[in-house]
Amino acid sequence: MDKSFFIKRKIANAIIYTVLTAIAVYTLMPMLFLLLNSFKSQSEIIRNPLAFPEVWTTEYLTRAFDAISFPRALGYTVLIAVCSLVLIVLFSSLCGWVITRYKSKISTVIYLLFVSAMLIPFQAVMYPLMNMMDWAGLKNIFGLIIMYAGFGLSLSIFLYSGFFKTIPYGVEEAALIDGANIFRMFFFIVFPLVKGITVTVLILNGMWIWNDYLLPYLTLGTSESKTLVLELFYAKMTSGQFGNPWELIFPAVLISVIPMIIVFLFLQKYFVKGVSAGAIKS
């Protein structure tokens, strides 16, 4: 290829990087705000939200760390998130796969059922759902996991079935001829091909489970086993009838988000342009 192509490419790259950096700065602004205010007292936050802290002290961070019982709450949150995610990925990948592969009216109906489930406002099912959970003796962590799995399925099936479509049948046929059974074929051949989307499913579901407030509140309430978000609401609640203890909220939100950032950084290496058609066809 000729030289002008590389020059053009370089200019294009420079433009892209400039734009990306500009947007990154814009996106980071509110985050910086959060970071900055995690080191400030209530008065400093109220008076000068944009200013740098008068003294850089970790006092508020450590206080928030204790106030939300971070290690314990993290344990519960991770437990709930991991269990729910395992169920979600397992169930929805299988379901999404088979309804894309088996083309029939019933597949379409099931697909649409799950899709439309995403449109139901939570308030519309809240009371009946809670009554059922209570009736089944599931107003506990186990019930919470089941509910998350149930609510998380729709989006995941939607995502999986969208992407299974882009994977050719060929491999599956070949595997069958080789005598693999359906689970072996799915988990060892098909599933690895959609790693990228599995990671997406994990991240998207993990995030709302991590940050969700209403479900754990209604099921776990003010019991000992509180999730991170619940601990934060509890700490806010006990700090006074009106007003917000920002000197607690900002550092607590910051602390709670760090594990998620770590997980995200770890998971995102699976976003690779891996699925080359060549590999599949052969």
Binding site: L90, L94, V98, L129
Partner: peptide, 15 residues
Amino acid sequence: LIMPSMLLFFFVIAI
């Protein structure tokens, strides 16, 4: 294959 998903769906959302 769709059974687990359907069960959850009915129990948590549909009903």
